[in-house]
Amino acid sequence: LGPKYVGLWDFKSRTDEELSFRAGDVFHVARKEEQWWWATLLDEAGGAVAQGYVPHNYLAERE
């Protein structure tokens, strides 16, 4: 699936296409579209919880 990303700060969605998340949440990014990335929010087991657009500057690649 490629690298995983972690949320740096809490983010509250403003549209139906955006995905709310908390700092520390883990994502798989499917598409990078300039300022907004289409991402899947993952649970602790790595299963998909939700999908939506997230601001790229709120995520960091997980080491």
Rank of each mutant, 00 (worst) to 15 (best):
residue 7 G to D: 04
residue 18 E to V: 14
residue 43 D to P: 00
residue 59 L to Y: 03
residue 61 E to Q: 11
residue 3 P to E: 10
residue 7 G to R: 00
residue 18 E to G: 11
residue 25 D to K: 02
residue 8 L to N: 02
residue 26 V to S: 09
residue 20 S to D: 08
residue 58 Y to P: 03
residue 20 S to P: 04
residue 56 H to M: 13
residue 29 V to R: 00
residue 47 G to D: 14
residue 10 D to W: 06
residue 37 W to G: 00
residue 19 L to A: 01
residue 21 F to H: 00
residue 7 G to K: 01
residue 30 A to R: 08
residue 32 K to M: 08
residue 5 Y to R: 00
residue 55 P to F: 06
residue 24 G to N: 05
residue 37 W to T: 01
residue 47 G to H: 15
residue 34 E to T: 11
residue 9 W to H: 09
residue 62 R to Q: 15
residue 8 L to A: 03
residue 44 E to P: 10
residue 13 S to K: 11
residue 11 F to G: 02
residue 31 R to H: 10
residue 49 V to Q: 07
residue 54 V to T: 00
residue 5 Y to H: 04
residue 31 R to D: 06
residue 3 P to K: 13
residue 26 V to A: 06
residue 56 H to F: 13
residue 10 D to E: 06
residue 33 E to Y: 11
residue 60 A to H: 09
residue 15 T to A: 10
residue 36 W to R: 15
residue 51 Q to L: 05
residue 43 D to E: 03
residue 7 G to H: 03
residue 57 N to C: 14
residue 39 A to E: 01
residue 1 L to K: 13
residue 35 Q to N: 14
residue 13 S to I: 07
residue 10 D to T: 05
residue 7 G to M: 05
residue 31 R to M: 08
residue 63 E to T: 13
residue 27 F to S: 00
residue 17 E to A: 11
residue 58 Y to M: 08
residue 28 H to I: 15
residue 38 W to M: 04
residue 29 V to I: 10
residue 35 Q to P: 07
residue 59 L to A: 02
residue 10 D to L: 09
residue 7 G to F: 05
residue 33 E to V: 07
residue 22 R to E: 07
residue 41 L to A: 00
residue 53 Y to I: 06
residue 34 E to N: 09
residue 20 S to L: 04
residue 14 R to M: 11
residue 45 A to R: 14
residue 33 E to C: 14
residue 50 A to R: 11
residue 1 L to F: 13
residue 8 L to Y: 05
residue 47 G to E: 15
residue 4 K to I: 15
residue 2 G to M: 13
residue 26 V to I: 13
residue 27 F to V: 03
residue 16 D to A: 13
residue 32 K to E: 03
residue 28 H to Q: 11
residue 60 A to N: 06
residue 2 G to W: 15
residue 30 A to Y: 13
residue 33 E to A: 07
residue 12 K to M: 13
residue 44 E to V: 08
residue 15 T to L: 09
residue 19 L to Q: 02
residue 13 S to N: 07
residue 57 N to W: 12
residue 41 L to K: 10
residue 15 T to C: 13
residue 17 E to V: 12
residue 24 G to I: 03
residue 19 L to K: 00
residue 42 L to C: 05
residue 50 A to C: 08
residue 47 G to R: 15
residue 45 A to N: 15
residue 45 A to G: 11
residue 5 Y to V: 03
residue 35 Q to D: 13
residue 10 D to Q: 03
residue 2 G to A: 12
residue 36 W to E: 02
residue 39 A to Q: 02
residue 29 V to T: 01
residue 31 R to Q: 07
residue 26 V to Y: 11
residue 47 G to F: 14
residue 11 F to V: 02
residue 33 E to I: 07
residue 60 A to C: 10
residue 30 A to I: 15
residue 24 G to W: 04
residue 25 D to T: 06
residue 50 A to Q: 08
residue 48 A to M: 11
residue 18 E to P: 00
residue 42 L to K: 01
residue 39 A to G: 03
residue 15 T to Q: 10
residue 37 W to N: 01
residue 27 F to N: 02
residue 14 R to K: 11
residue 1 L to C: 13
residue 11 F to H: 07
residue 30 A to S: 15
residue 53 Y to S: 04
residue 2 G to T: 13
residue 1 L to A: 13
residue 22 R to Y: 10
residue 3 P to S: 10
residue 48 A to Y: 10
residue 19 L to W: 04
residue 21 F to N: 00
residue 25 D to N: 07
residue 4 K to D: 09
residue 20 S to Q: 04
residue 15 T to G: 12
residue 28 H to P: 02
residue 58 Y to L: 07
residue 33 E to L: 08
residue 49 V to K: 08
residue 63 E to C: 12
residue 14 R to C: 11
residue 49 V to L: 11
residue 11 F to E: 04
residue 47 G to M: 15
residue 55 P to T: 04
residue 61 E to M: 12
residue 59 L to K: 01
residue 23 A to P: 02
residue 11 F to R: 05
residue 21 F to I: 05
residue 38 W to E: 01
residue 46 G to C: 08
residue 54 V to R: 01
residue 4 K to W: 14
residue 8 L to D: 02
residue 27 F to A: 00
residue 51 Q to Y: 09
residue 50 A to S: 08
residue 9 W to C: 12
residue 21 F to G: 03
residue 17 E to Y: 12
residue 41 L to I: 06
residue 20 S to M: 03
residue 32 K to S: 07
residue 30 A to N: 15
residue 52 G to D: 01
residue 52 G to F: 04
residue 19 L to F: 05
residue 17 E to L: 14
residue 45 A to T: 13
residue 53 Y to D: 01
residue 43 D to I: 05
residue 37 W to C: 03
residue 40 T to I: 15
residue 7 G to E: 01
residue 1 L to D: 13
residue 12 K to D: 14
residue 8 L to K: 10
residue 31 R to G: 05
residue 52 G to M: 03
residue 63 E to D: 14
residue 12 K to Q: 15
residue 47 G to C: 12
